[in-house]
Measured scan of single mutants.
Amino acid sequence: MEVRTIKVFTTVDNINLHTQVVDMSMTYGQQFGPTYLDGADVTKIKPHNSHEGKTFYVLPNDDTLRVEAFEYYHTTDPSFLGRYMSALNHTKKWKYPQVNGLTSIKWADNNCYLATALLTLQQIELKFNPPALQDAYYRARAGEAANFCALILAYCNKTVGELGDVRETMSYLFQHANLDSCKRVLNVVCKTCGQQQTTLKGVEAVMYMGTLSYEQFKKGVQIPCTCGKQATKYLVQQESPFVMMSAPPAQYELKHGTFTCASEYTGNYQCGHYKHITSKETLYCIDGALLTKSSEYKGPITDVFYKENSYTTTIK
C-alpha cells in the first residue's frame, strides 16, 4: 500500500517557510505537534488534498525554529505562539472599519479597549522592536488589523473576551517599542525636605499616572512627601515624541487643539466601556464603527496623549 502524501510549508514567522512532505494517514499533531492554519487549530486533523502548498504555523520545537521565533517575536515564552494563534482565530472574524481616516474595530468580545489602543497607536510616533509587531502594525494602518490585535493580546497575556485596560495595554506595548531616546527629568520640591531631581528613561519617561493635564504637570502637581507634608512635583525636561497622561476616570474637559487623542471610560472596574476622542479640525468621538463630532467635550476621561518633541522648564 502506497503512502499518500502532500507537500506543505511549516513556519513560526510566515517569513521562513520549511518544506514538509506530510503523510495523509496521520494527523498534523502526530507529525508536527500543535499546528495552526489561519489561526485555526488543526492539530487533530489529517492532511487533505486542499492543504497542498498551504502554510501551517507550528510551535518552535527545534533550534532553527526557536531562533526564527525569537528573532521575529522577541520572546522565548513557549506558550506565546499558541496564544497568538488562538487569538487570531477570533480577531480574523472582527470587522476593521476605516473611521475618520483611522483603522478602528467594530465592537465584539469586549474589544473596546483594543480599538482605543489601536486608534491611539496610529496617532503617536512609535516604532516597535519585534519585527512581528512592526509588520502587523503597518498592515493594521492599511486596514488589516487582525494579526496586530492578536499579537497585542498575546504580548499582554490576554484572551479574547476578557476586559482590558488601555493604560495597561499601552504599557505592555511600550515595553516592546523603541523608547531608548526618551528621557524625563522631574523635580520634587518640599518646604521641609528641599528639592530632589529624578531622571527617568524609556517607558517611565512617557507615562504618568495622577493627572490628565500635561500643562498642569509642567506647572506642578501636589504629591505627598515622605515627611508627610505636601510637596510639588513638576516637569523639568521632556525628550520624547509623545507623552501619555493618565488618571482614574473623572469628568474632564478636553479643549480642541490642546491634545492629540484621549480615552474615555464609562462604567466601573468590573464592567465598563471605552471610547476614543481625537482632536482634528474639530473633536471626534470614535466608538467602534461609530463616529460623532463636537466642538467641545466633557466626560469621564482616563488617558490623554500629547505630541511632544523637546521641553525644558522655565521655572527657576
Rank of each mutant, 00 (worst) to 15 (best):
T5Y: 10
T5P: 11
T10N: 09
T11W: 08
I15R: 14
H18I: 10
V22N: 03
D23Q: 12
T27D: 13
Q30H: 14
D38Y: 09
N49C: 14
E52A: 12
K54E: 14
T55E: 04
Y57L: 09
V58F: 02
E68F: 02
F70C: 10
T75L: 10
T76E: 08
P78N: 10
G82R: 12
L88T: 05
N89A: 11
K92G: 05
K95L: 14
Y96V: 07
P97V: 14
N100V: 10
G101Y: 06
S104F: 06
S104V: 06
A108M: 05
D109H: 05
D109C: 06
Y113H: 04
L114T: 04
A117G: 03
L119Y: 09
Q123Y: 06
Q123E: 07
K127Q: 15
F128L: 05
A136I: 01
Y137M: 13
Y138A: 14
Y138R: 14
C149H: 03
K158C: 02
V160S: 00
Y172T: 12
Q175K: 12
H176T: 03
D180Q: 15
S181G: 14
K183Q: 13
V188T: 15
K191A: 12
C193F: 01
G194D: 01
Q195T: 15
Q195N: 13
Q195C: 14
Q197E: 07
L200F: 11
G202D: 04
V206G: 02
V206K: 06
T211F: 03
S213L: 03
Y214I: 08
Q216L: 07
K219C: 10
L235Y: 00
Q237K: 14
Q237F: 12
S240R: 02
F242D: 01
A250T: 14
Q251K: 09
Q251M: 15
E253Y: 06
E253P: 09
E253H: 08
G257F: 03
S263Y: 00
Y265N: 12
Y265I: 04
N268S: 15
Q270N: 13
C271M: 15
G272I: 00
S279I: 05
E281L: 05
I286R: 00
A289E: 14
G299M: 04
P300Q: 12
T302G: 01
F305E: 04
E308L: 07
T312N: 08
T314E: 12
K316N: 15
